[in-house]
Design a protein around this nucleic acid. Structure first.
Lengths: 330, 330
DNA sequence: AATTTTGTCGCAAACGTTTGATATTTTATA
DNA sequence: TATAAAATATCAAACGTTTGCGACAAAATT
């Protein structure tokens, strides 16, 4: 079955293509009678405007691109969900590509976006090795880029992210409030700026406000690493009374060890994390956490995108605030 | 900055547009010398073919659509991830839309796909009220549809899904092996065919092979429901010794109650689920589960899509097999 | 009655490609 | 040396829209 086009409608109605086009868009030049006829036929023939032709003609697509390290991730999936929702409500469709933490994929994904002439891209850097010229090139082509979560240091770009320092400090506050004496703080990939920000803020805060609290620092690349680290610090000699987990992956690893060794929470050990809340609520008692909402971030990113597309360049760095959610683990 | 087009390249090289086009595609008609020149200029001017023009001209897009109830979901996110990966490796980009379990959204999403002339769509039904004419219309327009997970009964369509009956039976087998006497089996939304299939198979198997085992059946719409149900069955009078959870959501709820009441797993209660494995491994001991891999299903769906796009209609219903993964909860 | 305004509609070019047919030059064959 | 064959490059139409401009009638204004 051949697709119905403006031309086809025009032929059947003995009208010109332009008249049909205008009728369908409710253009004032066209009489009500004609509009009615056109709409009726379009309806019965299932006319669907060809987005390609429109985009080619108008040089503007209604598609936004999202690059994410992985779709299957508790934080990014909710970010994507939020962006998709906002987009759809504003007449945009979303194209999602994953970089799998691989800069090469990131590049080829960007290429796909360029070829599909997306009208904007949300990007999360896949590695600490920032390859920014590509993004700069996007901007030169008037394709706004909004970075999220893992953002470049460079301030030629628009960025939205969690209030990383605030998150870390909030966690530290609650650790101090618990009157912890020996703290284990496990952070993520050392290469990422997000890690550095959180760690620096945490460290400084602890030194300033609880100089007598002994803090150990560790980095875990994944869940198993975190479980191992926790194991090491759970033995008699260096037993810690509070553990801070920078990510969900780390929290999961830590909890694995805690459950395995049957350490009591919160009496024997206090646990606090940074999370969107899903994982912390899986345990009993619920783990206390500083909330970072992928959903919120997605919504913020979207308004930034719209702002960038409408007005001139708004080279801001916005953060979404964090809040502490009391579980029963502290 | 204006985009570089074939026309621009042609002008600068004093060649015709068609020559440039053919040179870039390594067409045998064009001499090596010309090809070299063209490629060099294209490179230095960052030429990117305009996907819209190509799609308009060739009437075929390199975009696939995915409709999913929710992106932020432990099963669907891995399905999406797999489809995206396969697609990218085959030169396709993926457009993802969520229906939020709402048939209306499902319809408008399909519209977006039609207007963007996607060359195929993966669809997961958003409700038991199957609105199939729309999908039939897609097929008539030669846009293949591959249903996944929640599929229509109608056999005019291509479907891939988990081997639902097998999953349930495998779980039942392991329950019998444990020598369970009082079983609580919690299933999901009663309206979905996937629930019916699993429940029927489970029930029949238990009756046939362990007629003396007492089974209670319940349905939970979400995590909290499951937690409540579990609470009811954990009291003295009707204490169960084994619980079967049809979904991750249910498992989470059940485990919440189990942790809260400090019931020992597996000595006091055996727990078994159907899952992709992420959630079961969060607990200690790991929960035994029948594995249903969204990733596997995604890969299967993709090959079905390719088959449908190449050859004629292959109206098959394929299932991906399940396997039992021993945790320590049985 | 002559002129202007208003209401409808059509013409044609453009967006950036692809591709069958055709033209031109070079090389090989008779 | 003439002629066929091969190599190379060009022409022009088409894909389905949008949109500035012009055309023509009927209605309104002088």
């Amino acid at each position: 079955m051949t697709n119905t086009t403006l031309k086809l409608l025009a032929q059947q109605l003995q009208l010109s293509i332009s008249t049909v086009s205008r009728a369908l868009k409710d253009h004032p030049d066209i009489s009500a009678a004609t509009k009615a006829k056109v709409n009726a036929l379009a309806q019965s023939l299932d006319y669907e405007p060809n987005a390609y032709a429109i985009q080619l003609r108008t040089q503007s697509s209604k598609i936004l691109g999202v690059i994410v390290p992985a779709i299957s991730n508790l934080f990014y999936d909710s970010f994507i969900a939020a962006v998709e929702e906002e987009s759809r409500n504003n007449g945009y469709a979303v194209m999602i590509l994953q970089s799998s933490h691989n800069p090469e994929n990131e590049l080829s994904n960007l290429k796909i976006f360029r070829q599909n002439r997306v009208s904007g891209v949300f990007a999360c850097l896949s590695s600490s090795a920032e390859n920014l010229e590509v993004y700069q090139k996007m901007n030169e082509r008037e394709i706004p880029v909004v970075f999220f979560d893992i953002v470049p240091k460079d301030n030629r770009f628009t960025k939205v992210r969690m209030a990383d320092e605030r998150c870390a400090i909030m966690a530290a506050e609650n650790i101090i409030k618990r009157n912890a004496k020996k703290v284990l703080a496990i952070f993520g990939d050392e290469g990422l700026s997000i890690t550095q920000k959180r760690k620096t803020a945490f460290q400084k805060f602890m030194q300033d406000f609880a100089p007598k609290t002994h803090c150990s620092y560790a980095h875990a690349a994944n869940t198993n690493d975190a479980a191992d680290i926790m194991k090491k610090f759970a033995d008699k000699k260096q037993k810690v009374d509070t553990v801070f987990c920078m990510t969900d992956e780390i929290l999961i690893g830590v909890m694995k060890t805690i459950q395995e060794l049957q350490i009591k929470v919160p009496s024997e050990i206090g646990v606090i994390g940074i999370s969107n809340g899903f994982i912390p609520n899986l345990y009993y008692p619920h783990i206390s956490y500083v909330e970072t909402s992928g959903h919120e971030l997605g919504k913020l990113a979207f308004v930034q995108m719209m702002a960038n597309m409408k007005g001139g360049k708004t080279l801001t760095e916005l953060t979404v605030d964090a809040k502490f959610v009391e579980g029963g683990s502290m």
